[in-house]
Design a protein around this nucleic acid. Sequence first.
DNA 1: TTGTATGCGTTATCAG
DNA 2: CTGATAACGCATACAA
Lengths: 341, 341
Amino acid sequence: MSRQRSERATLSDVAAMAGVSPITASRFFNEPTRVGAEASARIRAAVEALNYVPNLTAGGLASARSRVVAMVVPNISGPIFAPTLQALSDGLAEQGLQLLLASSYFSSEAEERAVRAFMGWNPAALVLTSRFHSPATERLIASAGHPVIETWDLAPRRRAFQIGFSHRQVGRDAASYLIDKGHRRIGFVHNIATGDFSAQERFEGYAEVMQAHGLEAWGHAPTATDPMDAGAQALSTLMARKRQRPHALIFANDNLACGAVLAGRRQGLQLPQDLAIFGFGDYAFADKLLPSLSTIRPPAQAIGATAAQLIKALTHRDDATGKPPKRVHELSCTLMARESA
Amino acid sequence: MSRQRSERATLSDVAAMAGVSPITASRFFNEPTRVGAEASARIRAAVEALNYVPNLTAGGLASARSRVVAMVVPNISGPIFAPTLQALSDGLAEQGLQLLLASSYFSSEAEERAVRAFMGWNPAALVLTSRFHSPATERLIASAGHPVIETWDLAPRRRAFQIGFSHRQVGRDAASYLIDKGHRRIGFVHNIATGDFSAQERFEGYAEVMQAHGLEAWGHAPTATDPMDAGAQALSTLMARKRQRPHALIFANDNLACGAVLAGRRQGLQLPQDLAIFGFGDYAFADKLLPSLSTIRPPAQAIGATAAQLIKALTHRDDATGKPPKRVHELSCTLMARESA
DNA sequence: TTGTATGCGTTATCAG
DNA sequence: CTGATAACGCATACAA
């Protein structure tokens, strides 16, 4: 009947060697102040001798709370979310928490699968990207026994914690910057990816400022499927106009803007004299283009770091004076004024 | 004595509602073929009704094997490892496995901490980056009850599974390419990061080919701390030489090469006529520079995908014909011939 | 195809 | 400051 016991030492082995009860050994790890100095020393020695590694699965089961934080991002390898992941991972490592990761590719079905699996881990917290979820996901997170943090977008009215920035403000800032530079005919080039709600909000911010200045707001939607191609296409189409040729273009993201910059140079355009180009994202290549790309950098790293801090505050609330953490954390973007606009 | 039971439905709840024993419900998830059609239907209904989510912590404890794969990478947000992570994560998601992640920043202490914590999860597999570990880490993985996969570098003699490519061959390919183009005075610009053993291997491959052609192999080590600055510095220093000015430079990575390209243009150099520039990595900006950067692309995505396949083969070995998976998987890089060389 | 008995390694609870 | 006991929710082993 005896099932496979692993070779590894258990807490009981450590306790036996140290001459204490298992629970005391357990406290050595979780509440060290409650263990006497001599006992601590003996336990420490036993841990060393047996090369003991705590079984986190067992601990998670017993305590109904595991030492992982789960995060769902649209993608891992893109230029956008990686800094957030890195900062979150680093902040969690300091707290002895691990990061459990899944990518959704902007699909709410994939997000739902990931969230469902994550719930099975009883994570210390669940971090999501954006606030748009399937109904089933909404139900899952509503019944979750742990904090849920939504990042990047901000939806102040939602129940989950929010860490992000205002895309609308990004649109406003871009438009204001270009207007201040003296541009008047300023267009907006939409993203090709469907379901990019945040790009739409940037457009609205842009439109708001344009109208406030009595200028016409208009959007152009390229059809190419590759972002760089789409940016080039937009530039060619719009600059081929006989009249009402734009003075400046705001692109939904830096990939599109990069395509436009490269195409503009290929066509012999003087940038930014003939056309100012403005992006969003401050991707890694933005400062390496010629001309370098003016754009807005989202607080990607700060979002991850703030999430880690928030999780710390939420999990250690007992030893603080009980002040509940802020529910909405609005961070600000940075306008990177470079050569292209 | 009764401790806090979570609100969530358990497998027993599902079983009770479906009128079967818990173990049958368990089999519904793990060995569906062994459950009768009627029972399956009732269990499925109960799962839906109770919104049941399997507790993976409990399952992991009971089976001594959890549905996670742990990976340690030097960094998450850099241009190098992100595609590997993405491919691994995607491949694992198909198998119902989750990815547990930590970054080491090239520190073997940080790697050791991460590996130690990961062992506590009884992961289905542990994936490491590179083969250089602290002695304690070596001991940990030697006693691990699960497969260990080392990626990027190749060390055929090690016990762990290996998935990677030959850095030496990268150095050979770069040198051969430049020699074929007619260059003779070809230098190598070293990385500023200490502990980048693989860059040293690329240098050795380059030196080997140079010597085989009766050409002198030499390395230059810039001192600037920022990679882009270091690349620019190397270019300035070497092109300022009165005699023996180089015809071509191989840089330890694309960041250095990018710094050189930008500095070269700023100084009015004609690239590649005055100097051919060759990188390594094929970072996102490589094809966006002017001139676009000739470089070698490592099989980052393939490494992640291969790791996922290997894990599948290792965990499902029972139902196959038992052919043990290959231990060493050597993948090949792609030379991206562009404008800079 | 289904069920019974038992244990995985840890922590919560209560008692000293 | 320390310990005895009883779970946590599930899967393994064996039996039917």
